[in-house]
Amino acid sequence: MKKTEQCKLIKKTEIIPGIFDFVIESDEISKAAQCGQFLHIKCGDKTFLRRPISICDAGDGTVRFIFEVKGEGTEELSDIPEGGYINILGPLGHGFEIKDYKNPLIIGGGIGVFPLYKLAKDLGGEANVFLGFRDKSRVVMEDEFKAVSGMCVIGTDDGSYGYNGYIASAMENYIKDNPCGVIFSCGPAPMLKAVKSIAEGSGIECQLSLEQRMGCGIGACLVCSCETIFEGMNRYMRVCKNGPVFDSRVVKL
């Protein structure tokens, strides 16, 4: 039987204001975790529901996740001290599928870059990575991604660092001359929309990681729906169970 686990927080870092990098101890989750999956986390006593947070990295009996303080739940979570315990359900969901792709490309935006880190590692450090942020002050994990990727392009929406403009445009220009076999993406909805359109326009397979407010996290309650087209029919699928990673051709954004 699967179960929830009380996991010890062994390392906590506020990497930039409001964004926390947590490493917890758990042999079971560490072994089971696949890139693109998420943890369903009980943040504390003040908030009722668990919060889904994507796995950034896992291995050696530890699991790492990074989150932005956005509301009461993440605020409460960020208050847990090193040495404290966190109740975790997971790993959950359908993550990125890694097949024998030629020239894989990864594109992430904002706090959507975190689940892409383990993916980049699992792709053998060969993928070309494009990461976009709002401005220079919000750039995170640059050195870490550079260490696990082929080429790594960093961009900012306001041009204050790296590529000037939306990172999807940088990717679009790049793939014109450098064909890629697959695109993996996670980030804000406008970016995912652009990536989906570019990928499908170029006939490139594309896997998108989506976000939605969740209830149970295991596929029973049907609240975290996303619109999809599957076998020619429009239907809602469950982000927590069918996703969070979907083939771009299936989801409507």
């Binding site: 908030t47 009722f48 529901l49 739940g73 939605q212 407010r213 969740m214 209830g215 309650c221 049907l222 609240v223 975290c224 729906s225 996303c226 619109e227 429009n234 239907r235 809602y236």
Partner: peptide, 14 residues
């Protein structure tokens, strides 16, 4: 098919 998302909102104790 069900309703459009979001389909859930957290409230105090519920």
């Amino acid at each position: 098919a069900g309703n459009a998302p979001p389909r859930i909102a957290e409230t105090p104790s519920g």
